[in-house]
Design a protein around this nucleic acid. Structure first.
Lengths: 214, 214
DNA sequence: CCAATATGACTGACGGTCAGTCAGTTATGC
DNA sequence: GCATAACTGACTGACCGTCAGTCATATTGG
């Protein structure tokens, strides 16, 4: 048992990984700090060296997911193509983070993890909305988009999508989910003043799946 | 201390009222079941005669608020006037429940009461969306509204509004809130295919305040 | 080059709190 | 008076967060 950390040990990361795994399996409520530290192979006290409270770990977990999504969206927003193409690419890029970070996102979407899901949504709106809003504002000049307040509009769309389609709050059947997804894309189209059908096409071409991420 | 309830005693109601009051003052997490029963003047065991768990009480509280909102919206939806007027009236009626049930709604909007807020939003979407959707569908025939899937669209709008404007998740300043509110009304207009400016006018005339309720 | 000393990451037993239980008590209807 | 339902509150187990102590490593002085 080394007291000084051995080379390349990462207690904080170990704890986050352990927590994400357990949260996914049993839900936040059912997982104790004792469970998390046991899973990470460290003592209880160590947990409190890296996190102020259990809630603090939740916040850091949410932050980590959203950070990645924001990065992916930013990268995509600088890609080639017109405003619509870049907007769609940014949204799809956020989804791809979902897939590569399945641990975190599964934990996030566990039906019981309301608090974690909410934290993520708030962080998502705060961090990602400006990125998408920038694309929309660029496309406003050439008439691709027509919207008064791009930032606030994107915020609403992100929040609505996350609340209605994300998480396990409503457990839609496959058909019910598809119906809400289609309605969501149309709402996005109309809210941003995009030509009717343009976004539905783009998302359908990209293999749809889901519009937002969390 | 009567064992058999005296005439017109309502332990369940007493407990709900006590809980709502305390939740509003200190937040759900900081209020123990012991606090609630002390506030209601009953023993701990009595609590568990009326509620399965603390979470069960939360769910019943959310249900109570939404029930009232749904009733108010239904009444308003049968009022006189065109589809737009009745739609706006229904939304405003939900808000008036806010005011008359301030205890419950304040408890609901306490920044810490994430779980309670989410429960309410889900119940709100499930119960109120059909009512508003019915109004919209009636107004679709005469061209007042133009929307493909009224139910799913209303669901999105309710969910988005509740997530972005309700609760204390984002604490918007007054100015920030007003900006999101305006964006929200425009999104509703466009999503439902209402003539531009029509809803903004109506809500402004009614004294705006806030679009949704929770 | 080797003690002696300092450092701080790590430990885990412990205090306090709280949700939920249950054996027992009290009043009421019959 | 007795059966029954409403009610009581002490108790249990679990869990969060603390803190005094430990020990491998780093640093310093001889």
């Amino acid at each position: 048992m080394p007291a000084r950390r051995t080379v390349s040990s990462d207690r904080g990361g170990d704890l986050l990984a352990s927590a994400a795994r357990l949260f996914r399996e049993k839900g936040v409520r059912a997982v104790s700090v004792d469970d998390i530290v046991q899973g990470a192979g460290v003592a209880k006290g160590t947990f409190y060296l890296y996190f102020k409270t259990k809630d603090d770990l939740l916040a850091k977990l949410a932050e980590a997911v959203v950070q990645q999504m924001a990065q992916a969206a930013t990268d995509a927003s600088h890609a080639e193509g017109g405003p619509i193409e870049r907007f769609v690419a940014a949204v799809l890029a956020m989804q791809s983070v979902d897939r590569s970070q399945q641990y975190l996102v599964d934990a996030l979407n566990h039906p019981e993890n309301t608090a974690l899901h909410d934290l993520t949504n708030v962080a998502l709106v705060r961090q990602v909305a400006p990125i998408l809003a920038a694309i929309v504002e660029q496309g406003r000049d050439d008439g691709t988009f027509d919207v008064e307040d791009a930032q606030a509009t994107i915020e609403f769309l992100l929040a609505g999508q996350a609340a209605l389609l994300g998480g396990g709050h409503f457990n839609w059947s496959l058909g019910e989910h598809a119906r809400r997804l289609r309605a969501t894309i149309i709402i996005i189209e109309r809210s941003l003043g995009v030509a009717a059908g343009r976004l539905v096409e783009q998302f359908a071409a990209a293999g749809l799946g889901g519009v937002g991420a969390a």
